[in-house]
C-alpha cells in the first residue's frame, strides 16, 4: 500500500471543496457523508459523492468515503450508492467489535457481487471511537481481509469516556497506544484522530510528532492548511534515511547471495527492521528526498 500520511476530511455536500481536492496536497481525502452533512442533506451529499467518484479525475489522490453509521437509516443507502462507484475504501463509524465489521463486509460483498465488482475491491477503514471499540481493537483490525486500516475517532471516544479532549492528549494516550499495537499486530494501517484547532499549527506539529513516534501511519486533517504540518512530522530525518538505504542495500545483497542474516554498521538486522527501512524509503520518495547511504 502506498504510504498515506494525511487524510483530508471534505464534506460530501461541498462540490467546491471536492473539485479542488487534488490541489490541496493531501495523500488521501475522506468524502464525508456523516457528521459534516446535515440530516436534511444526506441524500444530496450521497448523490454528489457518487457523481464525483464516477466522473471526476482525482489524479493520484486516494479517495475514501465516510458513510453514516450502521445504526442510522442512511447506512444501507450509503453503501448501495457508493460501493458501485469504487472508492478506495469506506470508513465505517463506531466499530465496537468484529461483528460490526463483518456485518459491513457482508453488505459490501453483496453489492460488489450484484455489480460484478471483484469481491474485496472496496476496502474498509474501521473507525474506533468508543471505549469498547478500543478494547476490541485487534479483533476489529483482523476481522476480515477487507479491513485495510483502523482509525481513531478522538472526539467521540473522549465523549464516551466522559473526559475532556485536551491538546496535551494524555486522555487518549492509552487508546492511541492500544490501537497502534492492534493495527501493527493485524498488519493494517492506522490513522490518528483530527487536530481541532486549525490556527494552532505548533500544537498540531507537536501532536503529529508524538503519534508518528507511537507508530501511526497517517493522520486525519480537517483543513487543507494542516496537511503540510502533518507531512512535516512524517518526514524521515537524514541520518535515519541514510541508514535505511544501507539496510535495504545490505538486505538485497544478502538475498542475492542466498544469505539469511545481515549486519549493518556492525549490528545484526532482522526482517522487521528491513521492512521499516523500506517503508522509510517509500516515505522519502513522497518528499522527493535523494536516496544515498553514505
Amino acid at each position: 500500500m502506498k504510504p498515506c500520511r494525511s487524510m483530508l476530511y471534505i464534506p460530501g455536500d461541498s462540490p467546491g471543496m471536492i473539485q479542488h481536492a487534488p490541489v490541496f496536497g493531501a495523500d488521501s481525502i475522506l468524502l464525508d457523508l456523516e457528521d459534516a452533512v446535515a440530516i436534511a442533506e444526506k441524500d444530496a451529499a450521497r448523490k454528489m459523492v457518487a457523481c464525483f467518484l464516477q466522473d471526476y479525475d482525482f489524479k493520484d489522490l486516494i479517495v475514501t468515503v465516510r458513510v453514516n453509521g450502521a445504526d442510522t437509516e442512511f447506512f444501507d443507502d450509503d453503501l448501495s450508492e457508493i460501493i458501485p462507484c469504487l472508492p478506495a475504501a469506506v470508513r465505517i463509524p463506531k466499530c465496537n467489535g468484529p461483528a460490526d465489521v463483518l456485518s459491513a463486509d457482508k453488505k459490501i460483498e453483496e453489492i460488489e457481487r450484484a455489480n460484478s465488482i471483484p469481491v474485496g475491491k472496496v476496502r474498509i477503514h474501521a473507525m474506533i471511537e468508543t471505549a469498547v471499540g478500543v478494547e476490541n481493537a485487534y479483533h476489529i483490525a483482523s476481522a476480515c481481509p477487507r479491513v485495510e486500516a483502523i482509525t481513531l475517532g478522538g472526539q467521540d471516544l473522549t465523549a464516551d469516556m466522559g473526559v475532556k479532549k485536551t491538546k496535551e492528549g494524555w486522555e487518549l494516550f492509552y487508546a492511541r497506544s492500544r490501537v497502534v499495537v492492534a493495527a501493527r499486530a493485524a498488519g493494517v494501517a492506522v490513522y490518528d484522530t483530527v487536530w481541532a484547532d486549525i490556527n494552532d499549527k505548533e500544537g498540531l506539529l507537536r501532536e503529529c510528532r508524538s503519534i508518528v513516534g507511537l507508530g501511526f501511519t497517517g493522520k486525519a486533517a480537517i483543513h487543507p492548511d494542516q496537511i503540510e504540518t502533518i507531512h512535516q512530522a512524517f518526514m524521515p530525518d537524514e541520518k535515519e534515511l541514510k541508514k535505511a538505504v544501507r539496510i535495504v542495500e545490505a538486505a538485497e545483497k544478502a538475498k542475492n547471495e542466498g544469505k539469511g542474516v545481515i549486519s549493518v554498521d556492525g549490528k545484526m538486522v532482522d526482517a522487521p527492521v528491513v521492512a521499516r527501512a523500506r517503508h522509510l524509503l517509500e516515505l522519502a520518495d513522497l518528499y522527493g528526498l535523494e536516496r544515498s547511504g553514505s
Binding site: P15, Q19, D43, A44, K47, M48, A50, C51, F52, D55, Y56
Partner: peptide, 17 residues
C-alpha cells in the same frame, strides 16, 4: 460556476425529492 458533475448531482437529487 458548477461543474457538469455538480449540476447532474443536484438535478438528480431534486428529481428524486
Amino acid at each position: 460556476g458548477a461543474l457538469e458533475i455538480t449540476i447532474k448531482a443536484r438535478l438528480e437529487t431534486a428529481v428524486s425529492r
